[in-house]
């Protein structure tokens, strides 16, 4: 197996008493789209910012393109591109100026006209940054991450806060990066994003990786269960649902019962009988094939948005 382009080993980082990253280890191969999937506060951004050379780890090692991000300086920065989770540009900077400005800092430069076209920003080339919509700002951020033809691209929550249509546009762009054989490290708390875009995903919680694999592998590891989400007229006695036929796991999330079943039809029949016996009523019932969300729930007992 070739040397990984990103290698992280036993990474630790604390902010005062808060341990943001607790012994994280993973590696990414060249040309791979790798996702860090986890809820807010899981340590994803801290990890990425260590890999970008913006934060110093307390312990552990991180190498990107064979270099130490913290110490390699300019040589390292020439090789990476990034979309930060929280950043901005001067209000009165024009779109084309921003691309040209950042391209000028690098020895390898992409054609900024092509980037404008590729990211559908041609019409906005002379617009001030302050005049752009959220989606346009994010497209500009992605274009800026590519001005130096980077070997590795870091995308920290690239679609957070964007509406679904803009999010899908960003997905298309990231899929293009995959076609271009760019190595991409993406952090997200959107299941859809991880499933659609990533070759491999690491599920992160409380600063630790709890499982790594391709989305397909992870879903199969979820015991092949179907998720059944049920809302009832009245709460049920604790533990009753987990005794129903085929139920592998049952949790209560603010009045919605989430059952993971290996035998969905039998579980539903058993559920209806149980409700009749208790003189209770079904308000809603939805079924989902296994997703990364289920894997996350199984592993952590929490939903990603918690």
């Amino acid at each position: 197996m070739p040397e990984p382009i990103i290698a992280v080993e036993g990474l630790f980082k604390s902010y005062g008493a808060v341990e943001a990253v607790r012994g994280l280890s993973f590696s990414v191969q060249e040309g791979e789209v790798f996702g860090l999937l986890g809820p807010n506060g899981a340590g994803k951004t801290t990890t990425v910012e260590i890999l970008e050379g913006m934060r110093t780890p307390d312990r552990g090692t991180a190498r990107v393109c064979g270099l130490d991000p913290e110490k390699a300086g300019s040589e390292f920065k020439q090789k990476i591109g990034a979309v930060l989770q929280s950043t901005s540009l001067p209000d009165k900077l024009r779109v084309k100026e921003a691309l040209d400005l950042f391209a000028n800092f690098y020895t390898s430069r992409a054609d900024t006209e092509s980037l404008l076209k590729r990211f559908q920003l041609e019409e906005k080339r002379d617009a001030f940054y302050s005049q752009l919509s959220g989606g346009q700002k994010q497209r500009l951020a992605l274009a800026m991450a590519l001005v130096n033809n980077p070997q590795v691209v870091f995308l920290d929550e690239p679609t957070a806060g964007l509406d679904p249509q803009v999010r899908r546009e960003i997905y298309d762009i990231i899929e293009e990066l995959r076609k271009d054989k760019k190595t991409v490290l993406i952090t997200t708390h959107y299941i859809e994003e991880a499933e659609r875009l990533c070759d491999r995903v690491a599920i992160v919680d409380y600063g630790r990786i709890i499982k790594t694999g391709s989305p397909r592998e992870l879903k199969h590891s979820s015991a092949g269960t179907t998720r059944i989400e049920v809302r009832l007229a009245r709460p049920l006695t604790n533990g009753v649902l987990s005794t129903l036929e085929g139920v592998a796991d049952c949790r209560d999330f603010e009045g919605t019962y989430i059952l993971h079943s290996t035998l969905p039809p039998r579980t539903i029949v058993a559920l209806v009988k149980q409700l009749e016996a208790e003189n209770n009523e079904l308000q809603s019932l939805e079924m989902f094939s296994p997703s990364l969300e289920d894997v996350f729930i199984e592993l952590t007992g929490r939903r990603l948005r918690d």
């Binding site: 970008e52 913006m54 300086g73 300019s74 040589e75 920065k77 020439q78 990476i80 990034a82 930060l84 929280s86 950043t87 901005s88 540009l89 001067p90 950042f102 800092f105 690098y106 800026m144």
Partner: peptide
């Protein structure tokens, strides 16, 4: 405004 951190990513001291 977080503008400087974007510049920090570039090879710029």
């Amino acid at each position: 405004a977080g503008i400087l951190r974007r510049f920090r990513l570039a090879p710029l001291g």
